[in-house]
């Protein structure tokens, strides 16, 4: 099949970029989207042009490296699927496919489709953990965790930190990301001692990074390749308000 790629090209963080068209004449429908970009890049290299820079690593939808906005949809048209798991059979012959990087003030563009997502790391550093010194842990069965709580924690812990929620949100908000981690840790009994400080510090860090606010549009959940539920955002709000009013710091 044939497709036209319209890719955002930007040679550096401070350069201005533009969309550039590339004609792909021999696309195998069984290729993944990234494999198609590989083919394009091989061609560009041999033509002496700069290949398209994009983040990718595991290519099985779990590391969270890849991510591009494809025709206005983060990770493309298939739900619950990362870009690396998106296959060309999802598209039709003759399609024009617009490929852009995540757009967010908190995720500055490094090159082409590569953005800097260290803001997420700084949010986790601010409190997205349970403090337990190595070797000091009590016997694992000394504290039971009700299965529904464990399942809820797991559902939220599935977040791969790709940033699609931010890319999809009309406000560029990272609430879904933060809410997933707060939900994961705050519903577990192990997470209780730091329950208030965690959410207060993480929200403070989130705001400092320059993400927008949540207006409950739900775009984040719809774009999330792991289906982190919007209910997590309600939980984050509740945890934050509760912690703020508790006076604990």
């Amino acid at each position: 099949m044939k497709v036209t790629l319209r890719i955002w090209r930007q040679s550096g963080p401070d350069e201005s970029g533009k969309l550039v068209d590339y004609q792909m004449d021999d696309v195998n429908p069984d290729m993944s989207f990234l494999e198609m970009l590989d083919v394009l890049n091989e061609r560009l290299i041999l033509n002496g042009e700069a290949p398209v820079a994009f983040d990718h690593d595991c290519r099985e939808g779990i590391c969270g490296s890849c991510g591009m906005v494809i025709n206005g949809m983060p990770h493309g048209p298939q739900t619950l699927t990362t870009t690396c798991q998106l296959h060309m059979r999802t598209f039709s012959d003759g399609d024009v496919i617009v490929v852009e990087p995540w757009r967010s003030a908190a995720f500055p563009i490094i090159k082409d489709l590569v953005v800097d997502r260290t803001a997420f790391d700084r949010i986790i550093q601010s409190g997205g953990y349970i403090s337990v010194a190595t070797g000091s842990a009590p016997e694992a069965h000394s504290q039971l965790v009700p299965k529904p709580d464990a399942d809820l924690a797991f559902e939220n812990a599935e977040c791969i930190g790709c940033g699609a929620c931010v890319a999809a949100c009309p406000n560029g908000s990272s609430m879904l990301f933060v809410s997933a981690k707060v939900s994961h840790l705050n519903v577990l009994p192990q997470g209780q001692p730091e329950r208030e400080t965690r959410v207060l510090r993480m929200v403070e860090a989130m705001d400092l990074e320059g993400f927008g606010g949540c207006t409950n549009t739900g775009e984040c959940t719809n774009a999330c390749p792991k289906g982190i539920p919007q209910a997590s955002i309600a939980r984050l709000n509740r945890e934050y308000l509760r912690a703020s009013l508790s006076g604990r710091r």
């Binding site: 016997e139 694992a140 069965h141 299965k147 464990a150 994961h184 577990l188 997470g191």
Partner: peptide, 20 residues
């Protein structure tokens, strides 16, 4: 010891209905 450490960190291992 690894299991103890990871559970204390909040790793959501699969559990039975008993909470074990």
């Amino acid at each position: 010891q690894i299991i103890d450490q990871c559970v204390a960190q909040g790793v959501p291992f699969a559990r039975e209905y008993s909470g074990l």
